[in-house]
Amino acid sequence: MIEWSPEKIKGFQKALLNWYDQNKRDLPWRVDHDPYHVWISEIMLQQTQVQTVIPYYQRFMKLFPTVGQLAKADESVLLKAWEGLGYYSRARHLQTAARQIVTDYGGQWPQTIDGLKSLSGVGPYTAGAIASIAFNQPVPAVDGNAFRVFSRLFKIDADIAKPQTRHLFEKVIQNVISRDRPGDFNQAIMDLGASYMSAKNPDTVHSPVKQFDQAYLDGEEDKYPVKSKKKRPVQVNYFGLIIHSSKGFLFEQRPSDGILSHFLMFPLIKADELDNQKRSVQKISSDEIIDTIFQSWVSTYQLQLIDLAFVDSQKVSHTFTHQKWQITLLEATLPSNSDLSYFPGKWVPQDQFSTIAFSKVQSKMWAAYQQKIPKTN
Rank of each mutant, 00 (worst) to 15 (best):
E221G: 05
E42K: 07
L27M: 12
D218R: 06
Y57N: 04
F310Q: 02
R30E: 09
T333A: 01
V316T: 01
R90H: 04
Q304A: 10
F150N: 02
I54R: 04
M265Y: 07
I356R: 06
W29S: 00
S354E: 13
D184R: 13
L264T: 08
T355K: 14
G107T: 14
K324Y: 01
S245C: 03
G121S: 04
L153W: 04
V77K: 12
Q95T: 12
A368R: 04
Q100K: 06
D257Y: 15
I173V: 14
K171M: 08
K24V: 14
P110Q: 00
D74M: 11
G240H: 01
N186E: 03
L340S: 04
K200V: 15
T48A: 02
P208L: 11
S178D: 09
A134S: 15
L153G: 03
A194S: 13
T319K: 00
R166V: 08
P138W: 10
K62S: 04
K283Q: 12
Q350A: 08
M197A: 10
S338L: 04
V102K: 09
Q304S: 14
R279A: 05
R279L: 13
E83G: 10
F353V: 10
D275V: 15
W109T: 02
E75K: 11
G11H: 02
K62A: 11
E288M: 14
R59K: 09
D218T: 04
E331P: 10
T103S: 11
I2F: 07
I284T: 12
T165D: 00
Q49E: 07
V38Y: 03
W29P: 05
E42T: 11
W297D: 00
P335V: 12
I130T: 07
I284Y: 12
D180G: 07
S118T: 10
S89G: 13
Y224I: 05
W325L: 02
D203C: 13
D34C: 15
I156P: 01
